[in-house]
Design a protein around this nucleic acid. Structure first.
Lengths: 255, 255
DNA sequence: CCTTGGATATCGGTT
DNA sequence: AACCGATGTCCAAGG
């Protein structure tokens, strides 16, 4: 148990010295900005990071109940027997007020962390696999361009040419493709068809098609090619040596 | 500083008794599931909640670098001079492995939190405002139904009738509406027009229109009505007494 | 279970 | 600053 006065001093000192603060505390939280929220009195975890991020976690669930992003400004005051922690960001103007009634535990630490974080298995990786070996789509195709601009309609993931010289616009989805994905592809194909004045094929590449998406796709005369991460990897592994990511590490053998 | 053996015991005991665990620790993190990630050695915050959620925070930024949602299963073992914390969820199969080299600080706490959380200023609130006073859209309109089913195309936020008896489908966006919003409205209007066999108007309600969205809207013959949260509130406040949310609270006077 | 769409979405890239 | 698209998005609601 820590007094509110001590807690206030600990937080101020941590903020000055670039330390992370973690507190378990009984508190109320108010948020005002793009929306408004109120969280009644209860015990939570409060995390204050040196870059201004503030995160409040309830004892359950993955997502924080209240938060402010990095760049927010912190003020800590004692008022009325409560510890008032305010975090404000200018644009958009948003304020989060935490009123702390009791501090169960608090600690601060300067955390040193310059390590690299790498994530793979993204849509970008699937795109690279198709680019490296377009025949993975089941027919001979030649790559024209990645991220080809479709006027003001956005960017097509891939532009290819089939064996008959017809342009093929490809939209890739890492997960099951829904209606939105079909609409997106349709926009690109319509634009490019109009731009070329010639027929243009559209292929939606995804591991699966949502029911509604399938009907829409047929109605629009677009095509679907099933492709999931696993198969994309097989190409990437042989072409790029994906194993460089897995590197040597304690968990390497598990994956 | 806490030994890895002690930390392992603390975590196991906390898991049994439904306590939250917070640790500052030097660790590596591996994730395998929908994607794959690797985080090199460095100092982070690790949060373990009794419902199975696991959250790993670096010293900067709002979002966790690695995580598992509630319902994940925890195993804690000592291997090779490292503390291995594994969190696994069955569907989709995803595994996060944390290898802890050094524990800077660890604490556990049973957090009691049954308070209510209320959030307002959402799209739902805008919908309620229009329902309560459809004329906010600039013409006399009568509400037919909220969340009106549009066949297999989804649900229209609002279905109204104008003074000439023409049905009006309304799609509401809390933020600037982009192309997706226009496509969404188009799907509904097309469906309902086909279903009725009569003209149907479509109105997109949003605080602003993205450039691309405006052109698309015109091309589709749909309409736009500017409406933001602030104006929706004025209606809600008078009609429903929004102030009940603000209630009596330490920060009440600030908002 | 799948599908759909909102979220204080967040985040990053480009214009 | 606006706009656009991906996300291990997460999450709830509905069928």
């Amino acid at each position: 148990m820590t007094s509110l006065e001590e807690a206030a001093e600990i937080i101020r000192r941590a903020a000055r010295s670039g330390e992370v603060v973690v507190a378990a505390a009984e508190c109320e939280v108010y948020y005002s900005g793009r929306s408004f929220s109120r969280l009644g009195r209860g015990e939570r975890l409060i995390i204050l990071k040196p870059d201004g991020s503030v995160i409040v976690h309830r004892p359950r669930g993955y997502s924080p109940v209240n938060y402010q992003p990095q760049g927010s400004a912190l003020t800590v005051t004692l008022e009325d027997g409560k510890l008032h922690v305010r975090s404000a960001r200018p644009r958009p103007l948003e304020v989060m007020d935490i009123y702390v009634y009791r501090v169960l535990h608090v600690f601060t630490a300067k955390l040193h962390d310059d390590a690299e974080f790498s994530l793979w298995g993204t849509e970008e990786d699937i795109k690279r696999a198709i680019s490296a070996e377009p025949s993975i789509l089941g027919e001979p195709l030649r790559l024209v361009e990645e991220e080809r601009r479709m006027g003001d309609k956005g960017f097509a993931d891939l532009l290819l040419v089939d064996r008959r010289g017809t342009y093929v616009v490809v939209e890739i989805k890492k997960h099951a493709a829904g209606r939105d994905a079909v609409e997106q592809l349709k926009r690109y194909v319509d634009y490019y068809r109009g731009s070329l004045g010639r027929p243009v094929r559209g292929i939606l590449v995804a591991p699966s098609l949502a029911r509604g998406a399938q009907r829409l796709l047929e109605a629009y005369g677009l095509e679907y090619r099933r492709l999931d991460l696993r198969r994309a990897w097989e190409v990437l592994r042989s072409r790029e040596g994906l194993m460089r990511f897995l590197g040597p590490g304690p968990g390497g053998s598990n994956r």
